[in-house]
């Protein structure tokens, strides 16, 4: 079980004052589970991923606890699939990049055809450079690099951003499949209607604060407690059907 307790992030300004970007986040993630993290732009969703992965700049002050099975989280136990496909090295073939991440985590060289097939990528993708991949393939390639580390817990940051609905569904089904294989998966997304199809619990952020953690059924059943959660769901589930002709 991965547990995040009272996670807060604040940035020191030049004049010595501080700006709080995230406060008091609580998360739990079990193996075999998919959870979601949603919120508007600037709510601090990706900041959570950066704080958990130790990617924040020098003027950031992070407080709170991150544990795995009651122990302090060690390197290699949590992996991140970033949102931008520019997170792939443009000069290196995909197969070499996957091996690179395995080496960094001290893992043996992965069986590339199997690692690619697991994500629905053809074997030939190992020889491809990132610019030769489609958007959906690149997103899956990012997940492949994260999985090569052998970490049991995975954060997928906006895995469906910029993808067509069909590809987005395939990526989310893939993440759900990873959870079924025993990974704990945290999906950061704007795409709430798709997210509730695979995530058991969804934490909603508003301006750096956690407003509630709801079950997927709470969205469709109208059981959301916080007004922001209801507004977010209403905005995202609106289809435009009630527009006057």
């Amino acid at each position: 079980m991965l547990r995040v307790t009272a996670l807060s992030v604040r940035f020191r300004r030049h004049d010595g004052s501080h700006a709080t970007a995230l406060s008091g986040l609580e998360l739990t993630l079990a193996r075999g589970e998919v959870i979601g993290l949603v919120g508007g732009s600037g709510a601090g969703k990706s900041l959570v991923a950066e704080a958990l992965m130790g990617l924040l700049p020098g003027n950031a002050e992070v407080s709170g606890q991150i544990t795995r099975d009651g122990q302090r989280l060690a390197p290699g136990q949590l992996a991140l699939a970033p949102q931008g496909i520019d997170a792939l090295d443009p000069l290196t073939r995909l197969g070499d990049q996957i091996c690179r991440f395995a080496r960094l985590a001290g893992q043996p060289p992965p069986d590339l055809p199997a690692a690619l097939a697991r994500l629905g990528l053809p074997e030939t993708a190992a020889r491809a450079f990132p610019h030769e991949l489609s958007g959906g393939m690149a997103k899956r390639a990012l997940i492949a690099t994260a999985l090569a580390t052998g970490a049991g817990f995975l954060i997928a940051d906006e895995p469906t951003l910029g993808l067509d609905p069909e590809t987005a569904d395939r990526i989310l089904a893939l993440l759900a499949g990873l959870a079924a294989q025993g990974h704990g998966v945290c999906v950061i997304s704007h795409d709430l209607p798709r997210l509730i199809a695979i995530a058991g619990r969804i934490t909603i952020l508003q301006e750096g604060r956690m407003v509630e953690t709801a079950m997927a059924g709470d969205f469709t059943g109208g059981d959301l407690r916080h007004p922001f959660s209801r507004a977010l769901w209403a905005a995202q589930s609106w289809t435009g059907a009630d527009l006057p002709c």
């Binding site: 991140l80 970033p82 931008g84 792939l88 090295d89 000069l91 985590a105 690099t145």
Partner: peptide, 29 residues
């Protein structure tokens, strides 16, 4: 400073390793 290097750093690559091992090709060309 690129997202690719940040992705590697997130999974344990040091700055020296990033510069001399992974960044060398970016600079060598």
């Amino acid at each position: 400073e690129s997202p690719a290097a940040r992705h590697l750093a997130a999974h344990g690559a040091s700055r020296l390793r990033l510069a001399f091992r992974y960044g060398a090709r970016h600079a060598l060309g």
